[in-house]
Structure formats: structure tokens, C-alpha cells
Design a protein around this nucleic acid. Structure first.
Lengths: 158, 158
DNA sequence: ACTTGACCTCAACTTTGCTTCAGGTTTTAG
DNA sequence: CTAAAACCTGAAGCAAAGTTGAGGTCAAGT
């Protein structure tokens, strides 16, 4: 399967699906949403440019990190799709995404750090936990820790 | 509004909503899904522990970065909710999340970098773009760049 | 030529994560 | 004590992001 495909300049929907790992139905869906485009053969079948493979890859990467299709679409709509890209639009778009991505990265890192900080407590205080500095000093059982937690926040770990 | 609330050890659903910024209906939903819990008053109204506020915060943070509720639920289900947390479970869970979060952060950073790399090209080659090293040497117009791109990948930016 | 696997469209269904609505109960402020 | 504001449940609706299915066409190998 896919024997001659590597030489061809265009991909069928099945080839695009196999190579991108995205279901054919999803590719159709993306096309309906205007995220990707295709030309049609005389027999009305889709043919995609190779570049579409990258476009799909970008879409999936963006999606996996929680960016909704609509926003991805907005971003990609500034891109060439066969034409020379508009330099200004591209750079502006890129700046926008940078900011968004930076913010997302920041939040993820915070979530990770918060999670780390709270190991040994479990009260989810997100960085303000009264226990965060006591891991070494207190055992996990007995009334000691519990009383300290309650002193710090009556509802915490109660 | 909320005048006495700061002293109370429990929150009504409205207070939890105001303080967390999450709609009452969403809180009900989370409760149905088992993400948060409440006790009921004699009149059948919900009362939440203060710790629930943190739990909700964590849920929203996790959601914003693309983690589905089901997974958040799985993660949170190991947590105390009034009991002393099981240390082993907690640590194991935390390790799992760490890995997941690290992976997410990695992907996001890659997406950001790819995006940066491709400024000036627009062909979305994701790091393999033939133009990435030419920004300074070539103008944006004329046949020069286009030819180079086509040499590198016939379908790219075509 | 013909069959079989890939494609086509369109409509309906699914899942996730909620919101809205209707109809009724509880709390709280004056 | 009463009226408004907040709360309750259950059902229905919605948007996003697809999937599934029916019924039909296209194209590739033998």
C-alpha cells in the first residue's frame, strides 16, 4: 500500500489520512470548516497538495494543546495555501499566537508546579498549603499534621 | 453581598460560583460528575467546604490546558475530600500527571518554536522549511525564493 | 470487463461540557 | 410575616468535533 505515492505530488484523502493519522471523516470535516482545501479530479475525488500534510500536523498539534478549531482556523486563514504569504499578516498572526502559546505554557507550568508543591498534602491549596514546608518534619499519621492543617485552614484536609 | 461569608466555614453554591468564577450550573454539573462533593442542609441545599474552591480552581486550570474532565476526575478521585490522603496513591498520581504535563509543555513549546521558525515562509514545513535560514539573504518578491522553495519541495508554497 | 476497494454526499448520531427552562422549595432581609 | 433572592430537580437544548451509515460513484488490478 502507498507504493507509488511517495513520488506523486498530490495525495488522495486516504493517503493523507494514513500519513497524518487523521481519519478520513475528520479530514472531510476539516475541509468543510475551511481548515484545509483540495482540488477535485474529473471524477470528483479530492487531491491534496503535500503541504496539506504539514497543515494537518499543525492543526493536530494545536488541538492537542487545547486550541479550538475555530482559532486554529483563524490563524491558518492568513496562510498561503498555494500563494506567497502576506508577510505582514503572517508576522502579526505569529505574534498573536506567540503570546497565546506563551500564556498557555505558563499556565501549564504553573499547574505542574502547583501539583508538585502539594505532594504530601493533598489539600490542593495551590501553593499556599500550610503543609508544603513540613514534609520532612512530620509523619503522615497521628494527630499532629491534622491539627496543623486545621490551624491553617479549618476546612483544609478536614 | 457575601458580607458574612468570609467567616463561614462553608460555602453555598452561589458563593462558590462567585468566588471561583464558575457558573452554578457548571458546579452542579461537576458535582454530578463526581469532581466535587457537598453536604446538604436540612433544606436540601448544598454546602461546600472551602477546600472545594481550590479543587474547582485546579479543575479550571487543568481544563484550560486541554485536559478532559474525565482525566481530571481520575486524578482528583485519589484525593482526600475530607480524608487524609493516601500517600502512595497521591504520589503515583502526581508522577503520572507530571509526565503528562511535561509532555504537554513540550508539545506547546515545539508548536511555538515551529511557528517562530517558519516566519517569513508560510509554508508550514514545521522545522524543515527550506527558507528558514534565508530570511536575511533573500527578498520577499521575485522568483528567487520561489524557485528555492520549489527545489526543496515541489509542493511547498507552490 | 469486471470486481473490489477507495471515494463521494448527506443526514443522523455521539460525546463532552455545559446552559436554559420550568416548576417548585428554602432562606433571608425588611 | 412576607416577599424577594437564592436554591432545588429534571429535562431539554446547544456547540464543538467528529463518527457512522446508507446509497451511490470511481479507479485499479486481473
Amino acid at each position: 500500500m502507498d507504493t507509488v505515492a511517495w513520488n506523486k505530488s498530490e495525495l488522495t484523502v486516504g493517503e493523507l489520512s494514513n500519513r497524518s493519522g487523521v481519519a478520513v471523516s475528520a479530514l472531510h470535516f476539516y475541509e468543510r470548516q475551511g481548515l484545509i482545501t483540495s482540488r477535485r479530479t474529473s471524477g470528483n475525488q479530492r487531491r491534496y497538495k503535500r503541504a496539506t500534510l504539514r497543515r494537518v500536523a499543525l492543526i493536530r498539534i494545536a488541538q492537542r494543546v487545547g486550541i479550538p478549531l475555530a482559532e486554529i482556523n483563524r490563524a491558518l486563514s492568513c496562510l498561503p495555501d498555494g500563494r506567497t504569504p502576506n508577510q505582514q499578516d503572517w508576522e502579526e498572526l505569529s505574534r498573536e499566537w506567540q503570546a497565546d502559546l506563551d500564556e498557555r505554557i505558563r499556565r501549564l507550568q504553573q499547574l505542574r508546579d502547583d501539583f508538585t508543591d502539594c505532594i504530601g498534602c493533598g489539600c490542593l491549596s495551590l501553593r499556599r498549603c500550610a503543609l508544603t514546608n513540613m514534609h520532612d518534619e512530620l509523619g503522615e499519621h497521628g494527630p499532629g499534621p491534622r491539627r496543623l492543617i486545621e490551624d491553617a485552614d479549618p476546612a483544609c484536609c478536614g
